[in-house]
Each structure stands twice: as C-alpha cells, then as structure tokens.
C-alpha cells in the first residue's frame, strides 16, 4: 500500500515533468532576422515640389534612389544622406546654391579622413551634417560638438 506521503511526492514530481515541456513555442527556433534595415521604405518618391529647381532635384534624386541607391544599399556615412542633403538644400535655398552645397558635401564625403573628431553623430552612428549649417547664414548655424549624439535622424 502506498503511503499518502509517497503519493503526494509522486504527484508533485509528475506535475512538474508534465509542465516543463508544454510550452512548445518556447523551445522552437527563433525567427530572427539578421538583415540590415535600410531606409529605402521611408523614402518619399512623390514629386511634391514648389518650384522648377526643386522639381529638377527631386527628379534626379528619385532616379538615383530607384536605379542606384535602393539596389546598392545604405552606404552614405552622413545623415541626412547626400541625396537627401541636395533635396533639403534645394528646399532651403535655390537650385544654384543647392548644387554648390551638394558638390561641397560630396567633396567632404570623399575625404577618407573625415569625421574622426569632426562631426557629431546620430544615434545610429552616422555623421550628422545638416544643410542648415551651409546656407551661409551665420545665424542659422547650429554648432554641435563632436561628442554630441543627435537623437533623431
């Protein structure tokens, strides 16, 4: 005859073994994506322009995004990216000034020693370099030290 003490012990042991494997999901292979997220999905391809200059830069940028950048991946070390920089510059100034700002940015991008102690960064690690600092309007320049981390892109 099994004593009450043994019965209780067996019941406790059984219940623990019954429950330990019930959560099948817990043991399943996790679906984890290692793909690097790119921002192409966030890109605005609309031709929402206020003047001919903006329309021209938007057309060029859209073509560049569609044919090259979306395929090539997120390679620009700056934020905003060089193409977005051109668009924002055209919005802030005019097509001529925006072109000069873009070629200056492009030269800075080609500098292999850029950024080590030069630009602040966004939280994802890219160099933060907004077009507002290059409009030649001293009052609009917002200097940020190198160690500064900008919260949003």
């Amino acid at each position: 005859m099994i004593s009450l003490k043994s019965l209780l012990s067996i019941l406790i042991l059984l219940s623990s073994t019954m429950h330990c494997q019930t959560e099948i999901l817990k043991w399943r292979k996790a679906d984890f994506s290692y793909e690097k997220q790119i921002h192409s999905s966030k890109r605005d391809y609309s031709f929402d322009s206020e003047n001919a200059g903006e329309f021209l830069t938007k057309s060029l940028t859209n073509a560049y995004w569609f044919i090259i950048s979306d395929v090539d991946g997120d390679n620009c070390p700056f934020r905003p990216t060089c193409s977005a920089f051109l668009l924002q510059s055209a919005k802030e100034t005019n097509i001529f000034q925006a072109s000069l700002m873009f070629f200056d940015r492009f030269t800075r991008d080609m500098n292999i020693a850029k950024g080590h102690d030069h630009y602040p960064r966004v939280s994802a690690g890219y160099y933060y370099d907004p077009p507002q600092n290059y409009t030649l309007n001293q009052g609009r320049i917002k200097y940020l030290p190198t160690a500064f981390i900008v919260d949003d892109e």
Partner: peptide
Amino acid sequence: FYAGNIYGSVASAQIFNA
C-alpha cells in the same frame, strides 16, 4: 567641384567661428 569648394570654404570659416 571648384565652385562648390569656394562656397564650402566660406561655410567652413563660418562654422569655425560658430
């Protein structure tokens, strides 16, 4: 590139002053 560099140099001096 030449004109952009002249423009960028002016902007760089302004940023330096800032």
